[in-house]
């Protein structure tokens, strides 16, 4: 009987040492945070040869990202009736053609509460091919982030850093990000409610 107790005691001793040593092994590896803090040299992401140029049109952004340059998706090609100055001339228009020429389909849902923004708060009053900011500076449609950023400066700060918005297709290669208007409709910028793309089966609990 005594022998059994002794051997079981020995067994626990062995088990304990094994468990403790495995704990020690676990603690010895360096953590992700250690590796991140140790990595301070810029990575040559252009070295990944498969991150080729995108098929979409991009423009060089007029801002800097972590000291370097980056590109944004071009916008003007996606505006169906660009250039605006083709219609916005001094020529007189018949009332019956008005429905065709005015932007009756655009619903503005932009602005706080019921105070909707007017067209000319973003669009330039004189030159319709441009936007203009609060100071009256003309802004190209491809660089609309300069306009949006005057109110949404927090979002712009995050967007410049990479915490808002998203990169296009590649994590490597030259930094190409979506423009504000690539995701948000400028006239109704909030995301809509909709049905999810798919669903998940219940968890087996």
């Amino acid at each position: 009987m005594k022998k059994i107790f002794l051997s079981s005691g020995l067994l626990f001793l062995v088990l304990g040492t094994v468990l403790l040593s495995s704990q020690a092994v676990m603690a010895s590896g360096s953590s992700v945070m250690d590796r991140i803090h140790a990595a301070d040299k810029p990575f040559d992401s252009m070295g990944i040869e498969t991150a080729y140029h995108l098929p979409v049109k991009t423009v060089l952004a007029q801002e800097s990202y972590q000291g370097g340059t980056f590109r944004v998706l071009a916008r003007k090609d996606f505006i169906t009736r660009f250039r605006c100055s083709v219609c916005h001339t001094d020529k007189k228009v018949l009332v019956s053609d008005g429905i065709l020429f005015t932007h009756g389909d655009i619903v503005i849902n932009h602005g706080r509460g019921n105070e909707r923004l007017a067209c000319i708060e973003c669009h330039d009053e004189k030159n319709r091919d441009f936007l203009s900011d609060a100071e009256g500076k003309q802004i190209d449609f491809d660089h609309s982030y300069q306009l949006c950023g005057q109110c949404h400066f927090r979002q712009k700060r995050d967007w410049l850093g990479g915490a808002h918005g998203k990169r296009e297709a590649y994590w490597a290669g030259e930094r190409v990000v979506r423009n504000c208007t690539s995701c948000h409709s400028p006239h109704s910028p909030a995301f809509e409610t909709k049905m999810p793309a798919t669903y998940s089966l219940p968890l087996d609990k």
């Binding site: 990575f43 850093g161 990479g162 808002h164 995701c183």
Partner: peptide, 21 residues
Amino acid sequence: CPTGSRVFGNLLDPNSEIRYV
């Protein structure tokens, strides 16, 4: 992701988006 909620990148690159986050 249509909302840009997902950020992916190289943790060893101090200039990556994930490091900014």
